[in-house]
Every structure is written in structure tokens, then in C-alpha cells.
Design a protein around this nucleic acid. Structure first.
Lengths: 215, 215, 215, 215
DNA sequence: AATGAATGAGAATTCATTCAT
DNA sequence: TATGAATGAATTCTCATTCAT
């Protein structure tokens, strides 16, 4: 048990941290529990991370990095208008299943009030979405009567909730309440329904259907 | 010889708890800070509530009750198809502004994993929404190609995120990132845009517009 | 074990702190050991004192207060030229015997490098001595060929070392080495010798004895 | 293939220890900080020294050795009666300036209660002083109405305090309080004043000046 | 019934010491 | 032989909970 922790072991420790923080929250997690889970002593945690907060930040950064890498690889694939949303939904559903910890960790962070954290977490996707939407709008492939920023915002809201509903106990139960246990397990159903919802929301404006009369 | 704390004082104590829990989270709040804020001793807290968790539950229950009362009174007013969403949005935006603590408390609870809590919180609105949507669908006033449960789910997702974005620091910053500081302050803008988004999502199905070609 | 610690108990706790700090130094003393000695829980220590440093400061302050009170009462007695030094020596020897902890605590503090502490501790006696010496000099009752400040300084140096030599293990052993175990126990001997030393140092100047030839 | 660390490196390590211990005290110094400062690993410290205490003892021993060597070389020079004190004062002031660490380390040790340490530190000078004083007394060059041991003791007290006042933060501030910042910097002033004080104390007895009347 | 002082278990963090490499 | 990573006991400080008054 010597010679500087391998890159690999470092990653393993971070993942233990991610899991523990995801499961019990920042305050609910003890450095000891992380160390035990990782099979190391607390001293090691403090050797590589200044304190609990710094360690948490490292865990968060690690999980963000991995998610971004994943999304980047996914994105490069499809870029056709509606395939975009479909690809994104499927990618995120897949990721939520495989890396529930990451999503739960995310959700824990929404309790924070550090603006810097928000930026670190949301910048990547917000840019991605806004850019994409702006592009689609200019091509006439997406409704033009809405602010791209807010369109992206609603889009991300739906995706975020979908991920939480897959990974976080509270939201899982909530989805069950709304749509039954089935919706929680059935990826295809959820994908298809969300896609339908989004397609309408993103492509049609009232003007498209002149005979509608507001209620 | 007031045998028990007056109903009023009880409510005041709960609201102090709501504010403290909303501001600092469950773990970040001390029984002492609540007692001080309420101008009582911790002994009183423990007289009426078994422990911290029970007290938190009471706070939550109280704030839910108030939100439900508010929504019930709002709902009775408008019931015409699209006014429903508009009324709901406005009501919730209003409530978020006036009772940010409640929304923040609500958000804190999403960290919990107690299924009973989910029910307590979500049952009222989920039923409300599902019933309404089912009714609208049967009247032909809403698209019929989607599950009412999931339609309600997406609807609530958007409303929930809207409320968090009004009241919770993390989500406030996130909205700012997506749509600028303006969107955070301008109720009308947000209402109008969300309404547009929803109208399309709820009323149109692909079938409505035969000339659309998927991307 | 209720109702705010009595003034008395507070003092008792401080004295436990004084003893522990005196015996083991600041770092060598644990809050637990103080609490145990005082028959209380650590929580109480932290209720009345912000942290270990603050508690130490309180202990120091308390012991200083007591010493000053003692000196003030002693001082009022004798004020004739050489009685002054004799009274002071006897008072301090007495105090060292009765309150060794205070002297040891003092000595611990000399390890500190906080200028504010120095002032708190030394101001009282330095003023006392300088004032007195200045007065004596102006009356012609004390040599006038030396700076009063440095005269007071040398005076206090001798008194300080005398006290340490009575109370602090290291200095006790050192005195034993210089003058045998007897000097350590025999107050009268030490007083008499120190007084002789001081009398000469304070009253004679070279000029007084014209027949001296430097070695 | 240097079987052991060179004599030189050993000395360097000890001096790093001396500086660290002098600056932060025994408890406030970490083995790691010493190793870093010396550019070695902690393992080396433990190879040559059983534990922290043993290492501290080695540092102390080293610095004592150097001080003794210095004093021995100084002493051989002047041996005329009053030049003795002057030479000693100047030598110690010089040493305090050049090797403040040694004096500070010395001061740290006075917190210890190990009699063996006292002997190690004080034996050399106490013998020196007592021998010298006894000699002077028998020559009639020094007052004979006092115990040589206590005379030596007072002499060393004054020298010790002078050194501390030069090198240790607490005592520096204290000297400033008594005699202003000037006394702290001005070697000649301090030497001259202390010498005046000592000359009187060591050479005159009351009997020398029959016309004095005690106060 | 109300108070709030006292309790003490529990969590973060440090650092002397060991020992695999 | 030297290294320095790993260990884990020890310490400070907090706060939910109790209970004497």
C-alpha cells in the first residue's frame, strides 16, 4: 500500500465519494464512511483533498467531466432536427440508468446556493441547447415565436426532471404516482411520450393552426 | 391557564421552522435557532413534536396545507380550457413570490426518500391535473394521443421547475444563465412564454398538421 | 444540575482550566481533561467560552485579576523606600507558594507572541515599578544615573525569575542547581539575599565610592 | 555509498529542527515541516532519532554544544574582574542576535519538567559563574556578604532575561513596554545600563557605605 | 407548563509513526 | 538506504435531546 495512489485508485475514491454523497447528501455523509467504502483511511482523503468541501467539489467535478464526455460523444452522432431531442433523451435516460449516482449527486447540488457551482454544472448544456435552438430557429425548423433561451430552459427542465425521475427516490416515487410503475421502467414509453410532447411544443405555434380559438 | 399553546402560536412556531428549514436545510437548521426565532425554548418544541424529524414533518404538513388551500380557492375561479394553465401558472408564480419559503422547503424535501412524503406532497396536484386532463381529452379540447398521466407529469414538471426557478437559489441562477436576469423578474414574460410552450404541447399532435415532415 | 452555572461554579471551572493549562501547557491540555477535572461535560465549556483559545484567555484573565487584587492590597501597606522591595518580594514569594498555578500559567504565556497578551500581563506591574522608581529617584532615595525604565525592567526580571524559580519545575531545578535545595524552601534566605543584591544595585552608583578601581 | 548521512547533513537537519522548534514550539512543530525544510523525508528523521522527543533532545543538545563552544572561546579572552561581566553580556547579546533560534529553543525548554534537561542546560554556566564568583570573593574583588550560589543565580537570571528579551517575542514586547523600542535595538545602552546595575549589586555591600540608613 | 443548562455521542481534521517499495 | 504514502488515534467542536427547576 505504497507509492502514490494510482490514477485509477484516485478515480475509485472519487466514485465512492460520488456514491456516498449521492446517497446521503453532503451533510449526511461522513469522511469515514467514504474512506471505509473505498478501503482506505481518512488520512488519505485529506492527503489529496483539503477538506470535506474540497473533496465534494472534486467528486462533482469528476462526475460532470464524465457526463460531458458522454454527451459530447453522443452529440457527434445525430444532428438532424428531431433526432436531436430523441438522441438526447435516450442518451440521458441511458446515463441515468448506468450512472444514477451522478444524477443524484447533481440533485444534491441543487440545494447549494453557490452561483459558481451553478455555472460549472449548467453552462455546458445550456450553451449546447441554446446554440442548437437558435440554429434550428434560423433554419425555420423550429418555432420562431419564442425566446431561444426560454425554449432551451423549458427543454432542459423536462430533461432534468426526466433524469431525476429515473434516479432520485423522491422523483421516482412521484413519477410512479403520476404514471404508474410502468413508466418508471419502460424507457421506450417515456421516450416516446416525452418526444411527442416536445415535438408539439417546439414546432407548432398557435399561428400554424388558424382555426384554434383560445379557451 | 391556557392549557396549550394557542393555535396561533403553534402556527407561528411552524412558520419559523419553515423559514429556517427552507433557508438552511434540515441538517443545517438547529432546534435552537428555530426556538430563538420563535421566541420560545427548545423544550416547547419537544413538547409538541417528538423530535427534529417530526417537527420538520409538521412544518411541511403546514405549508402543504396552506398551498392546497390557496390552490383550491384559485381553482374554483377559472375552469375554461386554456385559462386553466394560465390561472395555474399565475397562481403558482404569485405563491412563489409570496411564500418562497414554502417552495424552498418543498425543494428540500425532494432530497428525502420516504415514499409517504411524496404521496403527501404530490397527491393533491397530481390528481387535480390528471382529472382535469382526462376531462379535457374526453371533451376533445386536448390532444388524445398521449397518456393523461404522463401529460400531467410533464405539466407538473414544468410548473415545479418554474417555482423552483423563482424561489431556490440554485434554480434562480440557472434561469438567469438560460434567459438572463430579466426572465427572473418579469412574471409576464415567463407566463406568456411558458403558456405558448404548453399550449402547443398540450393541444397539437403531429396528426393535426399533415404537412410536417419529421427531421 | 440546572439553572445557569453559579458565579462560584464558573470560577471553579476557570481554576480547573488554570491548573490544567499550568500543568500541561495550552496544547498539552484537552478540553475533555478540563471538563473531567471540573466534573462537567465539554458542552458546558463551549457554552460559556467560544473555543479553547477563548477559554484559555478567560483563565488567564481570571488569574491576572486575582494577582492584581492581591498586589493592590499588599501595596497599600508599605511605601517606605526599601520596604517596598521587601514587601514586594515577600508578597510574590507568598503568592507563588499559594498560587503556583498562576505563576506556571504565566510562564506558559511567555511562549505566546501576541503583543496584546504581553500588555495585559505586564502593564500593571511595569507601571507600578516605573512610577515608584521615578518617584524614588526624584527624592534622591534611589540612584539617578540609570534609566527608570531599565531599572524597573531589571527589578522585574529578578522578581519574575524568583517566582518562576518557586513555581515552575524547570526553574525550581535550576535554583537547586545554583544554590541547593535549601534555597528553594527557605523563603527568608532568598528574600534576604535578593534584598541585599537589590539594595546595592538600586542605591549605589560608582560615584558613591570614589576609591573603587575597576578590575 | 555514504553509509550514513554526512556529519554535515546531520548538522543541517538539526538546525532545521532548531529553527522550527524555536519558531513554533515542540507541539506546534511537525516532523513533516522539519523534513521539508531540511529537504529530506520523514523516514530519515526516524532513522536517526527514535521519535519526536528524541529528535528535539538532539536539537537541543546541538545548540547547547554550540553555545558552550562559543562561550568557552569568549571566556578565554578576558578574565579581569569587571571585564568578566562586560564580556559575558556582550558575548550573549551578540549570540542572541546571531542565533536567536538557540535562545528561543532554550526558552521553549523551560516549559519542560525533566530535571535531566535542566542539568544539561544549566550546569555549564552555573559552574562557570559560581567558580568565578567564589574566586572573586576570595580575592576581595567582590562583595563577600552573599552566598556565591545565589549571587551567581541572580547574575544568570539577569543574563537569561536579557537574552530572552532579545530573542523571544513575548519578552521583546515586554522590554519595549518597560524601556521603549530603543532599548530593544540599542545594544550599547542595554549593556551599559545592565553593567551599572550589576557593578553596584556585585561589588557594594551596605557596610561599604556606613552613612546609608535603610528606608 | 415552560425553560434552557447540561449532556455526550458523533463528525472533521491533524499528525506521529510505520513500512512497502 | 531513502522515501513518503498510509494509518488511525486523538482532539476540537456541535447540537439533538433530556430533565431539574
Amino acid at each position: 500500500m505504497q507509492k502514490k495512489l494510482s490514477e485509477e485508485k484516485q478515480g475509485e475514491i472519487l466514485h465512492c465519494g460520488i456514491s456516498e454523497f449521492a446517497a446521503h447528501g453532503i451533510e449526511g455523509t461522513t469522511m469515514q464512511s467514504i474512506a471505509s467504502r473505498a478501503g482506505i483511511s481518512v488520512g488519505v482523503l485529506y492527503k489529496y483533498h483539503a477538506d470535506k468541501n474540497a473533496f465534494f467539489a472534486a467528486c462533482l467535478h469528476q462526475s460532470l467531466q464524465e457526463l460531458e464526455d458522454f454527451l459530447r460523444s453522443m452529440m457527434s452522432a445525430a444532428d438532424k432536427p428531431l433526432n436531436y431531442a430523441r438522441t438526447m433523451i435516450r442518451a440521458l435516460l441511458h446515463y441515468s440508468r448506468e450512472h444514477g449516482d451522478t444524477i443524484r449527486l447533481y440533485h444534491r447540488v441543487t440545494q447549494s446556493d453557490d452561483p459558481a457551482l451553478v455555472r460549472e454544472i449548467e453552462c455546458f448544456t445550456s450553451r449546447l441547447y441554446i446554440d442548437y435552438i437558435t440554429r434550428m430557429q434560423s433554419q425555420g425548423a423550429m418555432r420562431q415565436d419564442m425566446e431561444p433561451g426560454l425554449l432551451a430552459f423549458f427543454f432542459d427542465n423536462l430533461l432534468m426532471m426526466m433524469q431525476f425521475s429515473r434516479s432520485c427516490p423522491y422523483y421516482q416515487e412521484r413519477l410512479r404516482l403520476y404514471a404508474g410503475a410502468d413508466a418508471l421502467e419502460n424507457d421506450d414509453l417515456l421516450t416516446q411520450q416525452l418526444l411527442k410532447f416536445m415535438e408539439s411544443a417546439f414546432t407548432f405555434s398557435q399561428a400554424d393552426v388558424p382555426h384554434r380559438k383560445e379557451g
